[in-house]
Amino acid sequence: MSERILDVKNLKIDFHTYAGEVKAIRNVSFHLDKGETLAIVGESGSGKSVTTRSIIGLLAGNAEIMGGSIKFHDQEMLNNSEKDWQSIRGNKIAMIFQDPMTSLDPTMKIGQQIAEPLMKHKHVPKKEAWARALEMMKAVGITNAEERINEYPHQFSGGMRQRIVIAIALICEPEILLADEPTTALDVTIQAEILDLMKDLQKRVKTSIIFITHDLGVVAGMADRVAVMYAGELLEYGNVDEIFYNPQHPYTWGLINSMPTLHIEKLESIPGTPPDLLDPPKGDPFAPRNKYALRADVEAKPPFFKVSPTHYASTWLLDPRAPHVEPPAEIKRRWAKYRELQAAKSNS
């Protein structure tokens, strides 16, 4: 078993607002191993960003961690002082934000922005830091880097700016890279380039990645494991094949069904809206939108049922007492394929 570098357990986060306590994250647990990529997927507002921000200590001022633990190696991050956080941020854990157009300081030279973390954390003198920044610019594929290092953000395109943001994140060779929808704001063709670049650099720098997206489509090529999040809770997690070909939670079915593939002509989006987090439901939060909902779903929270040693799902449908339901055709097709694969594996 590979080394576990991050362990999040029963994390609970509230936001204090005028309207009341927004219970944004409720009992979320997951872990991250060295060198792997974990994708967190879910609709807008499901709490993906809040979860990642808590790992780097960048929650909004009105947020309060109500319980749980975040362990980075053996360090309990929730006990960190601001000073501790500062020595971790940009150094051991780095973050890439969604919008490259606004992520860079408009009045600071690119070179300085890339060199800054190095000067801060490794106390590298400016000249050397700029030399490293130049290398990094080349590594993220910026041509003519010698000249461009003296330019300002507005002189770069969106894709180029995201490359610069990646360079900033990786210059201290962090152990964990948090990428919060790093390609959502970019053109499709550029998206693919950036994802390739990230995979390439991950191997070179040997970093683990938590990759956030609401688009399952980009997950397949990117992630080793996938966690599905909904309304502040995890509903299902497993290896990428298990989530794509053997999904168990009806919400995951819905996500897969709404993913454009060759086999589905009509894109199906999940009807309804997520629940109000001021007063979250006591059962399965997805129940109100779930065609396959059982009475149990509104009565009590389903536990995580083990599907395989790496695959768990929180749905009463996996309870031995549950009736058999027919999943959507596309899911059945995938299940069949999964069984084939498993059979092939056990034969060989």
């Binding site: 362990d7 357990k9 029963n10 009992n27 647990s29 997951f30 872990h31 995890l234 997690y237 129940a287 779930n290 396959y292 909902a293 059982l294 009475r295 149990a296 779903d297 509104v298 009565e299 009590a300 929270k301 389903p302 536990p303 995580f304 083990k306 768990y312 929180s314 009463w316 309870d319 007492r321 549950a322 009736p323």
Partner: peptide, 21 residues
Amino acid sequence: MAEEAQAPQAKLTENAFEGLP
């Protein structure tokens, strides 16, 4: 990470495993 996430055995009503109208 699964084992620790097990919820305490929930109390369910008798007809809990009927579909929800």
